[in-house]
Amino acid sequence: MVDGYLGVDIGSVSTNLVLIDNGCHLIEKIYLRTQGNPIKAVIEGFAALVETGSKEGVTIKGVGTTGSGRYLSAVLLGADVIKNEITAHAVAAAHLYPDVKTIIEIGGQDSKIIILKNGIVNDFAMNTVCAAGTGSFLDQQASRLNIDIKDFGRRAALSQQAVRIAGRCGVFAESDMIHKQQMGYPMEDIIMGLCESLVRNYLNNVGKGKKIEGPVVFQGGVAANAGLRRAFEKILGMSVKVPQHYDVMGAIGVAMLAMEKMQWSRAITQFRGDAFILKGSFKTSSHECQGCPNICEVVCIKRDREVLAYWGDRCKKWENSLSEKTHAV
């Protein structure tokens, strides 16, 4: 028997699940598109993961969840650790590269910069109002140009001379690209130009005022894009490392945090077991709470007939009602 720790990262675009062993070695990783249905993604991902897990004889001793869907996946699986993405990404990167000073993480809707000092997060920033340069924007541009997103980076790497594209905002970038394309610039050079402009946008908006020092690690789904990596190296003037499992680093980090907590506290995991998630039918519903003029949209998630969680209420009336019930029991 092997002890395993499960890490789940539900983002806007992808749902990632990993299983690691006691030595932080990856047993299995699953990368799925969330496609607007995180519950389905978690169930599918978990089913695939359990298959490998049982072949290898793994028992799950701890569960960690992260990403914007961390509370949802925590309810579905029963989590020991629920952590924000910043901490999760930093933990995974610092384990792999103990001397890392800067982490660039670009996902579907968020981009982040994390500055570490002695392996501990010292400063961080996330994109605030603009999602230019994130995975969703690249996805959209690739489909407009009729290029498979998987080819995007490879095509960019072929470029000899990048075209200058306005990087201030996604809308400006798009119209600039169309303009350059109508003038007849080669596709490769336009794509590479877009990569460079996105890097400038990232450094100005997210990396604003932060001192970027090497070693730099680039992770998140967008790190697959060789063009962006090259653009970062060119503009920063230093080499940028992309870890082997760049796309699931958040999940790895939170699995490590779960392991740390379980080994330290020697508690029994909150994990609800395979049957809970695979055999139940999960349903969500929402209603407008009429308790005050805020009219919050309250979401309720149920397994068969049992209410698992409420959220969305600003005053926490619904959320608290559930905890009161469980306290009473």
């Binding site: 910043i86 901490t87 997060v121 010292n122 400063d123 961080f124 996330m126």
Partner: peptide
């Protein structure tokens, strides 16, 4: 997310 991350960082 931002608040949690900040509090976590400060704590660590």
């Amino acid at each position: 997310t931002r608040l949690e991350a900040f509090v976590d960082m400060v704590h660590r």
